[in-house]
Nucleic acid binder design. Structure first.
Lengths: 117, 117, 117, 117
DNA sequence: GTGGTCTAGACCACG
DNA sequence: GTGGTCTAGACCACC
């Protein structure tokens, strides 16, 4: 975790977990590591970790069963990948247009950037 | 200004001013509106506005002369457009790769998105 | 604090804190007093204190973690002492030369002054 | 003049004039350039220049005769050189001691600095 | 008129 | 508890 910047730590954790889901590191229906284990992994207090979990519950990505653990819902992976990529795309195009690039120019810029690597 | 979300108002203002520079609404070498005028425009107190101004000074985008006003530095517009777009591009590609898209797929997604409008 | 002269209070505070670092009153890696404590110590409002803190962050002397506190970076003490003394020396010699003293004369003046105490 | 920093312009001008006196560029008893000429030289408005003049009058360095001009007082050069250098010396030693140098160390540092040029 | 600094008190999100 | 942001209004020095 990046403790020095402005993004709340619990949000950073939420994002990391979402990444794991999209990458298929965490598989659908599977039980997630316990809060205690996650605290170790991310080096945070349980309170912070709980918030991250709550957030994921709120977004209907996981369900928590008291005394048992949290589970990934079925069908999340594909949907998450879709919504996240859609958001990234829209935001990116929107921002590029705000600073004066046409759609064509955006496409060219992307091509350049990708080929330059 | 968006008083509801988490981005500090003074950062929002900084971004708006940067946009104005990139759009050429504010021209190089030109005097910016006074702090008091900006307070009216953005509906904030002078202190908040000053923070935004200080930030832009720190980024070497403007220079301020006490009792006279703030001025856009020469050569900012082009450079700002370049660095901002570069950052957007890199971040976007990076994020898309993190969630499992190959460079080719990214390009295709962008094409789709742009053509769909 | 000296509320009477022209040096902004937050700059005076920055200098005092720098002095504490150089004297080793504040040790490297250590947590600084909280903003609220500093407000008591220096008898200023939190905003003024925050400005001082931001300044020190900008100079890469401390790092701040939201909700936790500010910490002295490692390696600051020695470097700060070096740069500050170097600046004082250069400025002093420069000013003395401006008003017509040769390097030799400067040395003699210093000797006199020191021995006279 | 440095219009961008925090030292008031009129103070900067006062210092420059003092330097000229100490260097003997302006000689004792001599008539100073007119306000109008000085405005040209320093590229400032007459109001700012007037303030600088007032300051020098206040410090008893010059006298102004209405409708005629300003004149350097007799005996200023030597005295000015003395007081200015004394101030510089004391301040310098004071500052160096504040950051933990002994008188001996100060002397050594000065020697080093001078010989290194 | 300009920018710069400050207070006193408030509210917020985060750990 | 921590740091971060903001207001409303004030005062100042300077051009």
């Amino acid at each position: 975790m990046n403790f020095a910047d402005n993004i709340p730590i619990y949000v950073q954790i939420v994002n990391k977990i979402k990444e794991s889901i999209i990458n298929n590191t965490l598989k659908e229906g599977q039980k997630l590591p316990s809060v205690r284990e996650y605290c170790q992994i991310f080096q945070v207090t349980s309170l912070t970790m709980q918030r991250a979990i709550k957030e994921l519950e709120g977004e209907e990505i996981i369900t928590t069963v008291k005394g048992v653990g949290s589970f990934l819902k079925e069908g999340t992976q594909k949907q998450l990948k879709y919504t996240v990529s859609k958001t990234l795309l829209k935001e990116f195009i929107n921002n590029m247009e705000k600073i004066g690039f046409s759609k064509e120019e955006i496409l060219n810029k992307i091509k350049e950037e990708i080929e330059s690597d």
